[in-house]
């Protein structure tokens, strides 16, 4: 998906990638990277109770939107905190 995110950016569509392995995305050159929950649940975390997990997901997509509206020069990793 890293390569695909780059194609979107190449076409002028800012895109953020939510992934559990930001290092891979960074080395492939994805510009807007959001550190996700885990490989089997990039936009979630089943270890959390349902309502807290939803809050986590909401923050992930909010951070994605923030990344999309941010000026970035090179691969940038954005993190989300729950507290």
């Amino acid at each position: 998906m890293s390569t695909m995110q780059k194609e979107a950016e190449r076409a002028g569509i800012p895109a953020a990638l939510i992934t559990a392995i930001p290092s891979v995305a960074k080395s492939v050159g994805v510009s807007r990277i959001i550190t996700g929950g885990g490989i089997p649940y990039p936009a979630g975390d089943p270890n959390l109770p349902a309502d807290r997990e939803f809050e986590f997901r909401k923050r992930l997509v909010e951070k994605a939107l923030e990344a999309i509206t941010a000026q970035v020069q090179e691969p940038t990793v954005f993190h989300v905190t729950l507290a």
Partner: peptide
């Protein structure tokens, strides 16, 4: 007419 996208990867 999509202006931005959110990708998810596993």
């Amino acid at each position: 007419n999509v202006q931005a996208a959110i990708f998810t990867s596993t």
